[in-house]
Structure formats: C-alpha cells, structure tokens
Amino acid sequence: MGRKVLVLNQDYSALSVCSVPKAFLLVYLHKAEMIADSPTYALRTVSEIYPMPTVIRLNKYINLPYRGVMMTRQNIFKRDGNRCQYCGTHEDLTLDHVLPKSRGGKTNWDNLATACKRCNSRKGDYTPEEASMPLFQRPFRPSFLMFLRDFSGTIDEGWLPYLGAREAMY
C-alpha cells in the first residue's frame, strides 16, 4: 500500500502528504474528514469495506510558521528531474556549485545544480559560461506547493484543485 494521501489544513490549504494507513486512522479517530476517496481502491477488513482516502482535511487548524522545502541532496535531484543539468544523463549524479565555492559561491538552492561526475569534473573551477557548458535550467528555490505538485512523484488527479493547479476548485 504505497499510495499517498494529500493532507489539507482546516482552511483547505495543502499541508503535507501522508500514507493511506495514517490518513485512514486520522479519519477513523475523527481528527480529519475525508474530502475525496479513490473510485477504484478500497480498504478491506474481515467484515468491512471502507473507502480509501485520497484527500483529507484536518478538523483543527495547524499553524506552521515555516513551510519551505528543505534543501537536501535528494530534493535538489528531484527539482532537476534526476538528470545532469549540463548533458542530461541520469548516471553518476552529484551536486555542482554553479558559481564555484572557491570564487564565493554559496551552498543554496540558487547555486546548486545536479551534474554527472563527468560534467562536474569537466566544468571544474569555472562558471558554466566560462566552461562553455550552458545549464538546461537555472537553479531555483521551489515553493512548498510547487514541490508537492511537481516534484513529489506521481500525484493523484484529485489533488490538483488543492495544489494551485489551473483547474478550478468548484
């Protein structure tokens, strides 16, 4: 049961993603309500059949002062589509400082890009322009909703209205 469930705050803003068992437990304990369920899957016990949640909303508002995306190696790889930003390969990936650290480059979202070992070594202590190695996309800091929508793997179609997609909620 590797499916995920979108968790909404009381005001219908996206809060996180959790497992189906965790979401079911929140609904069963009346800490959340089911907003959408799967039309094709169900949760079964020996004597009962329950709808499998895909979107739940918490009954109490959770105040989160910081809802940013943690800058980790894996999150940078996800942002860049698990491909080298110089040649496009998916093999031997590492992180590259676009502006090298030796030249004042910082370790942040806007200066780190996914690169294969070969391209990272070839670029060396140069900027992409100096090495004649243009980036497929400039590094950027993803927003929380963007990360949930675009970089968290496959998402359920029922999540789109809550993740700032073009489809209207009503």
Rank of each mutant, 00 (worst) to 15 (best):
V55L: 10
Y61P: 05
S16K: 09
R138F: 00
E167Q: 11
R67M: 15
Y28Q: 14
Y126S: 12
A14W: 12
D96N: 12
V46A: 13
S121E: 06
R73V: 02
I62V: 15
T94K: 07
D110M: 05
E33H: 07
P53H: 13
S132I: 01
S121G: 09
D150Q: 09
C119N: 04
S121I: 07
I35F: 04
G124E: 02
R149E: 08
F24W: 07
M70F: 04
Q85R: 12
L99I: 10
F24R: 11
K22L: 04
R103P: 03
S121C: 05
R166A: 15
V5W: 02
P142V: 03
M169D: 07
M169Y: 11
K117G: 11
V7C: 03
C119E: 01
F147L: 00
Y28T: 14
L135C: 07
Y61V: 09
W109A: 09
S102F: 02
L29Y: 10
D92K: 14
L15W: 12
G88V: 06
N120W: 05
P39A: 13
F24Q: 15
L43E: 04
E167N: 00
L43M: 14
M146S: 13
K22I: 10
M169S: 15
M71I: 09
D156C: 11
L15H: 10
Y86T: 05
Y170W: 09
K22Y: 08
W109P: 08
L93W: 06
V55S: 15
G104T: 05
S47N: 15
R83M: 09
A14R: 03
M70T: 14
E130I: 07
I56M: 09
N59W: 05
L8D: 08
T154Q: 10
T94C: 10
L64D: 07
A36Q: 13
M70R: 11
I56D: 10
R3K: 13
A23N: 04
Y41C: 14
K31D: 13
I62D: 03
R118N: 08
R73L: 05
A131G: 03
M34Q: 12
D11P: 08
L112P: 01
R79A: 00
P65W: 05
N9D: 13
V5L: 01
T154R: 15
V17R: 02
H90A: 11
Q74D: 14
H30E: 15
A113R: 12
R83V: 13
K60F: 14
N75T: 06
K117Q: 09
A36G: 04
I49D: 07
S19Q: 13
E48M: 14
L29V: 11
R83E: 08
P161I: 10
L135P: 07
P142M: 02
M52I: 11
P21C: 06
K4R: 11
I35M: 15
T127F: 02
D37Y: 13
L145G: 01
C119R: 00
S19I: 09
P100K: 05
V20Q: 12
S143N: 01
E91P: 02
V5G: 02
P134C: 04
T40P: 01
M1D: 03
D125M: 05
V27W: 04
L163N: 06
I155Y: 00
F140G: 01
S16N: 14
P65E: 15
